Simulated assay, not measured.
Amino acid sequence: MSSPTFETISTILENDFQVARADIQPDRPLVELGLDSLALMEFVFAVEDAFHLRIPEDKLDPREAGITLRRMCEVIEQAPPQAMAT
């Protein structure tokens, strides 16, 4: 998967959370990236800030089993314009 959204998320993981680039795969569950629950929430906040939007918890709870980077990209790319923070 190579999209601007995935690349931005990958850069956040690599630079801010010290996740090895080799571990950043689209279908890898977020819980397998070696981040504890607090770091997972901080990661979601960092992604929201990078894309200037807020992701409702019902769309994406990073602690939920099976949420992947691909799913995170889909949620961001499908966010309605009103989800954009002002």
Rank of each mutant, 00 (worst) to 15 (best):
I76D: 01
E7K: 06
T11L: 15
E64S: 12
P62T: 02
Q18A: 12
P81R: 09
E48W: 07
A79P: 05
S10D: 02
P56W: 05
I9H: 07
T5A: 01
E7G: 09
R70D: 05
S10Q: 12
T8R: 11
R70T: 08
I67G: 00
T68I: 01
Q82P: 04
D61I: 01
D58T: 15
E14P: 01
E64Q: 13
R54F: 12
P4R: 12
F17W: 07
L38V: 15
T5Q: 02
M1N: 06
F43Q: 02
L38S: 05
L35C: 06
A46I: 06
Q25N: 06
V19T: 09
A50C: 06
L30F: 01
D58R: 14
A65D: 10
M41N: 04
F6G: 00
D23P: 04
I24V: 14
Q78T: 04
E7I: 14
T68D: 02
R63L: 15
L38G: 07
E14C: 07
L38R: 07
E64C: 04
D49P: 05
T11S: 07
D36M: 07
A65Q: 10
E48P: 03
L13D: 11
S10H: 10
L38N: 03
A20T: 06
S2L: 13
T86K: 13
Q82V: 10
V44T: 11
A85G: 12
L30C: 03
I12L: 07
T11R: 15
L38P: 08
F43R: 02
R71D: 06
L13H: 11
D49S: 14
R21L: 13
L35E: 06
E42Q: 15
G66Y: 04
A65R: 05
F51N: 04
L35D: 03
S3K: 03
C73K: 00
Q25D: 11
E74L: 01
A39T: 08
A85K: 09
V44P: 01
V44W: 12
H52Q: 15
R28V: 00
L53G: 02
I76C: 02
D58V: 13
A83C: 08
P81T: 11
T5V: 09
G34E: 10
L60G: 05
E77T: 03
I9E: 09
L60I: 09
V31C: 05
P26L: 13
T68S: 04
L35V: 12
V44I: 15
F45I: 15
H52Y: 09
M1W: 13
L38C: 09
E74V: 03
T8Q: 11
M84K: 13
Q78G: 02
